[in-house]
């Protein structure tokens, strides 16, 4: 499938949620969300598989700052201490997000008490437990969330990103190996 038609499909996939909500059936929001075939939302970009942490090193609420998929993309990984959307690990509470605000690219700070990420530029706030959902602010999408995997030894790997990173046309920079 070409990139263009794949993106169209994603837009259609997303509209099941909004379209159903817009008309009448109350429960369809939940049904549509549960019915999403996660494989259709997977990217075709060549994401690297990068180890970000080991479960044993993680302390609840203490964020770890690193980069993914390349050094120009700061990310935060945190064990929230409560189950989170797309969380991994035995408690399904380990999540990672881009630290560039999906409004205009400000660098976000994590706040432990609320489990939120805050932008100093225009005061956007994102909920780390809810897939990086915008709590308030002027961003037009969630904070891009890293797709994580945990191997048998408890190593946490980033394998992809849901959502477009601020400041990029594609999450993997063209010729990123050489630039």
């Amino acid at each position: 499938m070409s990139d263009v038609s794949r993106r169209r499909f994603l837009k259609l996939g997303a509209c099941v949620v909004g379209g159903a909500c817009a008309t009448d059936a109350l429960p369809s929001l939940a049904q549509a969300a549960e019915g999403d075939d996660i494989t259709t939302l997977r990217t075709t970009l060549p994401y690297p598989r990068v180890q970000l942490a080991s479960i044993g090193q993680l302390t609840i609420g203490r964020e770890q700052l690193t980069t993914y998929p390349d050094q120009a993309s700061p990310v935060v990984l945190v064990k929230l201490g409560r189950p989170a959307i797309n969380g991994v690990g035995p408690e399904r509470d380990i999540v990672a997000f881009s630290r560039r605000c999906s409004h205009m690219g400000g660098t976000l700070n994590f706040r432990q008490g609320t489990g939120t990420l805050h932008c100093p530029l225009h005061y956007a706030m994102f909920d780390a437990q809810k897939g990086g959902l915008l709590v308030i602010g002027q961003a037009t999408d969630n904070l891009p969330q890293l797709e994580l995997e945990v191997d048998a030894a408890g190593n946490v790997f980033a394998v992809g990103i849901s959502g477009l990173l601020y400041g990029r046309q594609a999450n993997i920079l063209p010729n990123s190996g050489t630039v």
């Binding site: 959307i85 797309n86 999450n171």
Partner: peptide, 14 residues
């Protein structure tokens, strides 16, 4: 449980 988001990881540039 799934999140609410657009989902794209690239956009076309003009």
């Amino acid at each position: 449980m799934s999140s609410i988001y657009h989902g794209e990881d690239r956009v076309p540039v003009p």
